[in-house]
């Protein structure tokens, strides 16, 4: 009798263990990331089905990678800003400003490394300005960065005199178009940035604390965190990363252009982060999710071009994607929250 009972109990425990194996895998990937992967698979199936001749070529896949590298870098930083409870819509303008300063610095110093560092530095300063305005001035992040966006854009035009400045340095040509072991340098930069931010957010106390201040500032402060310092740090990081994205853009185009980065880059970065599961209220979102968001945008862009959808319709498609993503996230939140 007892034997039979333990047999049944063991069977039950076993089936529970199996169930929980699948469950724990889903939990590890995250339900939101899972639905992003499914969406990505659907997009790939659609475009792969429509243009099987081109879509799966290595060349095309690398194209997608190169196209999303800059956006990917920006979206990674944006994810952290949003997790911290803020929003940075000045990143596109910082990218443009950074390209101009890098192009000028190449002329002044002749050193590509110094020029790149200078571009990142300029971006970081812009980020500090954002952070100080938001924390010390107690101004809403959207309003503050909307204002600085115009300022940074203006600065880029002033210092460049509104002109495009060409970069002839071969190092930049290599960064923009070169490959190492068949992998474009831009993609390598993206992967390095994603890895760095992933480690930051998941394995360091700093990352934990960024989640904490985004989750609830009062709680974070009462637990002894210096909320202001973290906020300024996050915007500085976002600015510096935009400076680095400016380097990639300058390298891709071989020039510093004050107008560059103004084609809605910041909105695409926010779209990607929200697609990736960030809550605009803060405290929630993952680096990997944000990357999946970027991939979806990249595949969608690429597929729409391959299937000859006119540019104007592509914009509509992207807008619809953002709204659909938010609605889905909202529904999921209701179900699981």
């Amino acid at each position: 009798m007892t034997e039979a009972k333990t047999g049944v109990a063991a069977g039950l425990a076993e089936s529970r263990a199996q169930k929980s194996a699948v469950r724990s895998m889903i939990e590890r990937v995250g339900t939101h990331n899972l639905s992003l992967l499914i969406a990505l698979a659907i997009l790939i199936a659609i475009f792969g089905g429509l243009r099987p001749d081109v879509f799966f070529l290595v060349r095309n896949i690398l194209n997608i990678g190169q196209a999303i590298a800059i956006l990917g870098v920006l979206a990674t930083a944006q994810t952290i800003v949003i997790v911290s409870g803020g929003l940075d819509i000045s990143v596109g303008a910082i990218v443009g400003m950074s390209t101009v300063y890098i192009a000028l610095a190449v002329g002044w110093t002749g050193s590509p490394l110094l020029s790149i560092l200078f571009g990142v530095f300029v971006g970081a300063i812009a980020g500090v300005v954002n952070g100080v305005i938001i924390t010390v001035g107690r101004i809403n992040a959207v309003i503050a960065t909307l204002g600085t966006m115009a300022v940074f854009r203006g600065v880029a035009f002033i210092v460049s005199n509104g002109q495009s400045i060409s970069i002839f340095d071969p190092a930049f040509r290599f960064i923009g178009n070169g490959k190492i072991f068949g992998l474009p340098v831009t993609i390598m930069v993206l992967i390095a940035m994603v890895a760095a931010f992933f480690v930051l957010m998941n394995y360091t106390v700093t990352g934990r604390n960024i989640y904490a201040i985004g989750g609830n500032q009062v709680v974070a402060r009462l637990a002894g965190l210096n909320v202001r310092a973290y906020q300024i740090g996050v915007y500085t990081l976002s600015g510096a990363t935009a400076g680095l994205a400016g380097m990639l853009l300058a390298a891709r185009t071989g020039s510093g252009q004050p107008i560059s980065g103004s084609d809605g880059l910041e909105l695409e970065a926010i779209t990607a982060a929200v697609l990736g599961g960030c809550a605009l209220t803060g405290g929630k979102g993952t680096i990997i999710g944000g990357r999946l968001g970027v991939l979806i945008i990249g595949v969608l862009d690429n597929g729409l071009i391959l299937t000859s959808v006119p540019t104007f319709y592509q914009m509509v498609a992207k807008g619809v994607l953002l709204i659909a993503a938010v609605i889905i996230a909202e529904l999921q939140g209701r179900r699981y929250g």
Binding site: Y211, A212, N216, V218, V219, A223, G224, G283
Partner: peptide, 24 residues
């Protein structure tokens, strides 16, 4: 709920929030 807890975060994360030096 509004002053002490990070509601979305784990039990472990909430307990360790004020002892970053001990867990890193």
């Amino acid at each position: 709920k509004s002053q002490a807890l990070l509601l979305l975060r784990s039990v472990a994360n909430n307990i360790s929030l004020a002892v970053p030096d001990l867990i890193s």
